[in-house]
């Protein structure tokens, strides 16, 4: 099934990228849907434009170890190519995390919410408004919460643990809403 990736959504993605680069001055990754004509499984782009070393030639030496803890508290350890976003990793490796990345990395939902180690969180570049907007609606938000689609794995993160929030809590009820999606 082909997808409706409008020019506008691509543009808005680009705008976010620009915003990210402007703020941080550091290269960051940003995934957007990549849709082949007929595919069974979701595939995510490797955003070659902005991520420095995500292309081929990745040997074991370039791998970064990341431990994911899923909703059920089960730890899954995986070797990640530097430059991939945490969302890319979950999708590419088909990690057992239910409902992860519903909007496919377009900053339109909060389903790739992850809780990071404090020492990792502090070293990341600041969030763009759009990421905070979505995080404000996420379940079980903490001081070290980020959206997985906005966090690009780097060598210095080797061995980090990222946690899927386990608390079922609807932040949206705190804000109140008349139910648009």
């Amino acid at each position: 099934m082909a997808r409706c990736v409008s020019l506008r959504s691509v543009l808005s993605s680009l705008r976010s990228i620009v915003a990210i680069s402007q703020r941080s001055g550091v290269q960051r990754c940003f995934s957007h849907p990549w849709m082949p004509g007929s595919q069974q499984h979701r595939a995510f782009s490797m955003h070659p434009i902005l991520c420095s070393s995500s292309l081929s030639n990745s040997s074991a030496a370039d791998k970064v170890l990341v431990h994911f803890v899923n909703q059920d508290g089960v730890q899954i350890t995986t070797a990640v190519t530097e430059g991939e976003s945490l969302l890319d990793v979950v999708i590419k490796k088909n990690l057992d995390i239910s409902g992860f990345g519903a909007c496919e990395g377009t900053l339109a939902c909060s389903t790739c919410h992850l809780i990071l180690d404090e020492n990792i969180y502090e070293k990341l570049d600041p969030m763009v408004d759009e990421e905070v907007d979505m995080l404000d609606l996420a379940y079980g938000i903490t001081k070290t919460s980020r959206l997985g689609c906005q966090v690009c794995v780097k060598k210095w993160m080797d061995g980090m643990t990222v946690q899927v929030p386990q608390e079922i809590k609807d932040m949206r009820n705190a804000v109140g809403s008349a139910g648009s999606q």
């Binding site: 099934m1 997808r3 409706c4 808005s12 849907p33 409902g99 519903a102 909007c103 377009t106 339109a108």
Partner: peptide, 26 residues
């Protein structure tokens, strides 16, 4: 449902969930 008939037409990113739903249906 509302992904087709509720989500605003200028929010195509939100409609990406259709890919997941399609996987489920198949």
């Amino acid at each position: 449902g509302l992904v087709r008939f509720g989500v605003a037409p200028d929010h195509p990113e939100v409609k990406n969930v259709i890919n997941t739903f399609t996987q489920t249906a198949q």
